[in-house]
Design a binder for these strands. Sequence first.
DNA 1: GTTGAAATTAGTACGAA
DNA 2: TTCGTACTAATTTCAAC
Lengths: 211, 211
Amino acid sequence: MSEISRNGVSGGGQPGRIGIGLELDDIHLKILEVLRENGRISVAALAERVGISRANAYTRFEALRADGAIKRFTAEIDHVRTGLGITALIFVTVRQQMWKQFRAELARMPEVEYCAITTGQHDAMIQVRVSDVAAVHTMVTDRLANIPAVKATETVFILDEVLRRPYVLPSDRDRPRQQRRPAQEAQGDVPLGKMRFVGAAEGRAALRKDD
Amino acid sequence: MSEISRNGVSGGGQPGRIGIGLELDDIHLKILEVLRENGRISVAALAERVGISRANAYTRFEALRADGAIKRFTAEIDHVRTGLGITALIFVTVRQQMWKQFRAELARMPEVEYCAITTGQHDAMIQVRVSDVAAVHTMVTDRLANIPAVKATETVFILDEVLRRPYVLPSDRDRPRQQRRPAQEAQGDVPLGKMRFVGAAEGRAALRKDD
DNA sequence: GTTGAAATTAGTACGAA
DNA sequence: TTCGTACTAATTTCAAC
C-alpha cells in the first residue's frame, strides 16, 4: 500500500545538498547508520554512540524524520517462523497504458511484499511471501493471470536469501577494504561479453547469454 | 553481512505451531502487525493497541524477540535523500562450487542491499543502490566481472519502486476484500500460456515468452 | 551545541484473579 | 496465563550556560 520513492535513472547524488530537503552531514549519516541496525535504540543511547549531546541528537533525529530521510521504523520478521516460508519473484509484462489498473490490483494482494518497475525484458518484478508452493501457483495463475493488464509472467523461487542489509547508505562506500575506482578506469580490464545490460526498450525480442 | 532465513521451497506453514520456536497466536500476529509499521512504538502503547495488559505485552514482545520471529528493528531510509537514488538488479550466473567465494565477495560490496539465490535462468539476484548510473556500470564490469565465480550477469534498472510492505504476515491474507481460493479450484479458468514457471535446472537453455 | 536537573514515561517485579 | 499495581530505572524535555 505504501508508495515509496521514485527513482529516476537520471537521479543523481552529490554529497551534502541532496534533494529538496535538509543537508545531510556526516553526523546525520552516522545516525542513520545506527538507526538502520537498531531502530529501537533510545535517542540518549544514539547520542552517545554517535558522539553528540542528547539535545543535538533529538534535534537531528526529528529533522531526519520530518525531512523524510527516515521514512519509517519497522520490525524485520522471520517469515519462516510466521508461516510464510515460501518466497517467489514474479516478473510481469504489463500491457502499456494499463499500469494504473495493475497497480490497483497489486494493492489488493497482501502477499506482495515488494514491487518495482524495471527496465529489461519484463516491466515489473514483484516479490511474494506465501505459505506453500501451491499458493504461488494460485497467485500467478488465478490472480495475476486474470488481470487484463498482465500480458505475461515468469516466476522463479527464492531458494535462499543470502543477505539483506537494512539500508545501504553512502557512507558505506567509504570504508570497504576494497577500494572503488572511477568508472573510466574500469574500461580496459573487463572480460567483455561476460555481462550484459538490458535496456528498457531493448531485450524484449532476443535474450541469450553467452555461456 | 547479515545472514537471513533459509527458505527451502519445501518449507511449509501450518498456522499455530511453526518452526521449532514458540507458538504464535492471534495476539502475537497482531503485535507483529503493529510493530512492522511502527517499530519504535512503546510497549505500553503497543499493549493498548493490541488490547492486552502492559505486563503481557512485555512478555510477548520479549518472547517474539527471543524466539527470532522478530529479527531486528530497522529504520527505512529514503535513498534518494541520502544520495543513492539509483537502484539496479543484477542477475548473476554463478559457476557451480564457487558459491562460497561469491558470497565472500558479496560481503565486501557495501552497495549490495539484497541478495537471493533463485531458481530459473540465473542463480542469484542482487539489488544494489548507488549514486549514479556510472556506478552500476563500474560495479558490474569492474567488480562483479572480476570475480571468477561469476560466469555471467544481466542488469536491469529499477525505474520506480511501486510498493514495499514492511513485512508480509499470514494474518494479511485473511482480510483482503478479494478472497483467495484453494489451488485446485484455480485450474479451469486460467488463460494458459500466459505465464510460465522457470525451474532451477530448466530454463537455462531456452527462454521465450509468448507475446 | 552542550550540560544538568525536573517531569514524564518506560521497564520490572511482584501478588491476585 | 493474564492482569493490576507499585517500584525502580531510564528517557525526554527544558532550562541555563
